[in-house]
Simulated assay, not measured.
Amino acid sequence: MPYIENSKYQPPSFIYKNPHISTIYIGRFKKTTAPDYQRERIELEDGDFIDIDFLIKSTEKAVVLCHGLEGASTRTYNNTSARFFLNAGYSVFAWNNRSCSGEMNRLPQLYHHGVVEDFRDMMNYVLSKGFPEIFLLGFSMGGAQIMNYLGSMEINPRVKAAVAVSTPIQLKSSAETLKTGFNKVYLKNFTRKISRKLRTKSEQYPDVIDWSRLKSIKTFDEIDEFFTAPLHGFEGREDYYKRASPAFVMENIKTPILVINALDDPFLGEECYPVEFARKHEFVYLETPQHGGHCAFPTKNPDFFYSEIRAHEFFSQSTKKP
Results as ranks from 00 to 15, higher is better:
residue 112 H to M: 08
residue 251 E to I: 08
residue 31 K to H: 07
residue 3 Y to H: 14
residue 290 Q to C: 03
residue 150 L to I: 11
residue 299 T to E: 09
residue 35 P to E: 10
residue 314 F to N: 03
residue 237 R to S: 10
residue 218 K to S: 14
residue 284 V to G: 04
residue 2 P to R: 15
residue 4 I to C: 14
residue 6 N to S: 15
residue 99 S to I: 03
residue 312 H to C: 06
residue 123 M to D: 02
residue 9 Y to S: 07
residue 227 F to Y: 03
residue 247 A to T: 05
residue 14 F to K: 04
residue 156 N to G: 09
residue 320 K to W: 08
residue 46 D to Y: 07
residue 175 A to N: 14
residue 126 V to Q: 01
residue 148 N to G: 10
residue 150 L to V: 12
residue 172 K to L: 14
residue 55 L to P: 07
residue 63 V to Y: 11
residue 256 P to T: 14
residue 99 S to W: 00
residue 178 L to T: 06
residue 184 K to R: 12
residue 114 G to Y: 02
residue 148 N to Q: 13
residue 302 P to I: 15
residue 294 H to D: 10
residue 204 Q to K: 13
residue 53 D to M: 11
residue 187 L to A: 12
residue 303 D to H: 07
residue 21 I to G: 04
residue 125 Y to A: 13
residue 255 T to M: 06
residue 124 N to Q: 09
residue 147 M to H: 03
residue 21 I to Y: 03
residue 148 N to I: 06
residue 242 K to G: 05
residue 308 E to R: 07
residue 126 V to A: 08
residue 85 F to I: 10
residue 322 P to I: 15
residue 197 K to N: 11
residue 236 G to E: 04
residue 6 N to T: 15
residue 202 S to T: 09
residue 226 F to C: 06
residue 38 Q to G: 06
residue 183 N to R: 12
residue 270 E to H: 06
residue 10 Q to I: 13
residue 229 A to F: 00
residue 161 A to P: 01
residue 93 F to C: 13
residue 211 W to P: 00
residue 41 R to A: 11
residue 148 N to D: 08
residue 247 A to P: 00
residue 195 S to A: 14
residue 161 A to M: 04
residue 4 I to K: 15
residue 219 T to E: 11
residue 86 L to Y: 04
residue 36 D to I: 15
residue 274 P to V: 06
residue 183 N to Y: 08
residue 51 D to Q: 13
residue 59 T to W: 01
residue 125 Y to K: 11
residue 16 Y to E: 09
residue 142 G to L: 05
residue 143 G to W: 09
residue 65 L to A: 10
residue 180 T to L: 14
residue 233 G to K: 05
residue 274 P to W: 02
residue 5 E to H: 13
residue 286 L to F: 08
residue 92 V to I: 15
residue 305 F to N: 03
residue 74 T to S: 14
residue 54 F to M: 10
residue 218 K to H: 14
